[in-house]
Design a binder for these strands. Structure first.
Length: 239
DNA sequence: TTACCTTACCAGAGGGAAAT
DNA sequence: ATTTCCCTCTGGTAAGGTAA
């Protein structure tokens, strides 16, 4: 895959077969409009200074350590070496643990999607895996160290290649019980269901992401564009 | 090696619901 | 009506990793 830069390279391993692959960001917020904070008076960027919350004194970088709050205002201190020692080592291998039927995908767990493509000469084994999964209608669960964390990913056929979605950890996913707690146990059937069917029938469509824009982004982008044009007009008043 | 792009992480802001 | 609490979002820095 030429063009976009891979942000992870390694191997995918299923059984005895392994092939070099690369991950490419599939959805990114980096295109979002972003601001910097400036000093209005000077036009310079501002920066953040860390201040001791009790004494008000600035805290030097070497004096900043991580603390874990045990209880109100009580912390245990973790030195940088201790923290970095806990970072898992990467073997650069997406090891497929299991294949599961696609119908079992629980989208609640989906975190971020990455395109998974063969790297270098791995195409043969890659296509074997992709076509096999497509034929069987399965997704693969794999584990690897990604961005310094041991992550589980769900891999599915996607277009000509595969897509790997990182999965939220179990502790990150909330039970739906609380949200649906007060759901009455009503039976909706017969004519009532037909009402719903009718409403749905009048609104059947297909998903076209391009029709959903971010109104805030669009508005701010227009504002920025107008400001830039204003600046240029000032520079070249002849036009 | 440097430039660039990315994610992780953090504190503070903000918003909504619950408590007073 | 106001305060408190909790959670999420945001805007920033840091730092990893690829490509050149």
């Amino acid at each position: 895959m030429a063009g976009p830069k891979a942000n992870w390279k390694g191997y995918i391993k299923f059984g005895e077969v392994s092939c070099p692959v690369a991950l490419y960001t599939a959805a990114s917020s980096s295109e979002r409009i972003a601001f910097n904070t400036l000093n209005r008076k000077t036009g310079n960027r501002v920066k953040r200074e860390f201040i001791d919350s009790e004494t008000g004194d600035p805290v030097e970088r070497e004096d900043q350590v991580k603390g874990y709050e045990v209880e109100n205002g009580q912390y245990v201190v973790l030195e940088p070496e201790e923290v970095s020692a806990a970072v898992p080592e990467s073997n650069k291998t997406l090891k497929i643990e299991a294949f599961i039927p696609c119908s079992q995908n629980d989208t609640t767990y989906f975190d971020k999607p990455y395109y998974l493509a063969p790297d270098k000469m791995g195409t043969g084994a890659f296509l074997l895996l992709r076509n096999g999964m497509k034929k069987e209608g399965v997704a693969a669960i794999a584990q690897t160290v990604l961005f310094r964390r041991l992550r589980t990913v769900l891999i599915r056929p996607h277009g000509k290649g595969l897509i790997a979605s990182t999965l939220n950890f179990d502790y990150e996913v909330r039970s739906s019980e609380k949200a649906f707690e007060e759901m009455p146990d009503l039976k909706i059937e017969g004519e009532m269901l037909e009402v719903a069917e009718h409403i749905i029938g009048t609104k059947v469509g297909s998903f076209d992401a391009s029709t959903f824009d971010n109104r805030y982004e669009v508005a701010v982008a227009e504002l920025v564009k107008a400001k830039i044009e204003g600046l240029q007009a000032k520079k070249n008043p002849a036009e």
